[in-house]
Design a protein around this nucleic acid. Structure first.
Lengths: 197, 197
DNA sequence: ACTAATCTGTACCGATTGGTACATTATAAG
DNA sequence: CTTATAATGTACCAATCGGTACAGATTAGT
């Protein structure tokens, strides 16, 4: 930890990064302009380029930040949940908030990015794969715990079920953006939950 | 059918519309530029504005065109399929082509649009809802036929199952864009199919 | 006080965006 | 052949895109 002379930062990099993340999350990469970012992060263009390197590099940092943020939330939710199956139901149900309009239908930054870039950018594709893998791992742990607790038959393939759950989360989030009503989504969740036992 | 004087069209509007549709399908709305469209449609800018009104209006026409095109394909596939359940399996399996890299991972124009616009544009939101409804109807018919054929229990809610299938199609397409391998996707399809019986 | 290092504000860059104005060309009806 | 109508080609528009150059401001060490 060496101290160098020079003017100190006038902003908190993590706060600024979080603001950028929220914006990318809500609007996607392409339709988020530098101007939008500067306003949301409340820093000058020079500072952004100096501290984050540019739009693309900032976006990649946001993807990582999102992964940490969201996986952290999921991990604590899983730990706090009385049962593994309860956590899964809660997670699927969280999409209903978006459908109700309670929260914004901004989906998941990782899945949004997968849809927006569709493997066109190798760097981004890798970040998407990494993020998705982390979510998968949480779901897989939840499934295994539910199996240990007797709520899911032990002979079922936990990896497959975790993949199935990720796919359903993704589908639900897309349908939510498509304007699906809450009742339809409840039905989908019901069918998906029944598929686990 | 009245004949008016004036210079005749030098292009087939349907051919041009299809070319535009393919481009929007592959690249999305925002990242498809006018220049891209003119090149793919092989018409001049004047002709595009004269015949289609502009980018946004052209896009809406493409959405309708896509709906006709895709629902038509699905309807004939369903009619040609020996069983309703076979059609459903075939439809879900079609996503594997994208995962294999056999065909491009461009997903579904309606779902892509839902993800890109996320209800920000009311006009587009309505087009998305309409398109999705048409897909849902095909799936619903397939489920009812499978029920009549004894492959799906008659007491199960056909609407719910159709919604579930749309959601899974969507999830699979997103995961395909995220770079999921074929084996994972086969597993997901297996779980989803099992959820129907 | 001076210097080296770092951050910030201002002004600017070429490229590209979707869209428009208008003259020119090609047809059908009279 | 003239005229009304419609399609096309050319030139242009302001606005915005992400990015850069550079001077000014603010610090720590000497």
């Amino acid at each position: 930890m060496k101290l160098s002379p020079g003017r100190p930062l006038e902003f908190d990099p993590e706060v600024a990064l979080t603001a950028a993340m929220q914006l990318f999350w809500k609007k996607g990469y392409e339709s988020t302009s530098m101007q939008d970012l500067l306003q949301a992060m409340n820093i000058s263009k020079s500072s952004l380029y100096q501290a984050f390197g540019g739009k693309q590099q900032l976006f990649e940092k946001c993807m990582d930040h999102y992964g940490d943020f969201m996986v952290g939330k999921m991990r604590t939710a899983l730990a706090d949940s009385p049962t593994g199956l309860g956590f899964i139901r809660l997670l699927l149900g969280s999409v209903l908030d978006e459908a109700r309009g309670t929260s914004e239908a901004r989906g998941c930054l990782v899945l949004n990015t997968a849809n927006e870039f569709a493997r066109r950018n190798p760097t981004v594709a890798e970040a998407v794969a990494t993020g998705l893998g982390r979510f998968h791992n949480v779901l897989q742990d939840a499934v295994r715990r539910a199996q240990a607790e007797g709520d899911i038959p032990p002979e079922r393939d936990a990896v497959m079920l975790a993949n199935f759950l990720v796919s359903n989360m993704s589908g639900l989030k897309t349908l939510s953006k498509a304007g699906a009503d809450e009742a339809s989504m409840r039905g989908i969740i019901e069918v998906a939950m029944k598929a686990l036992v």
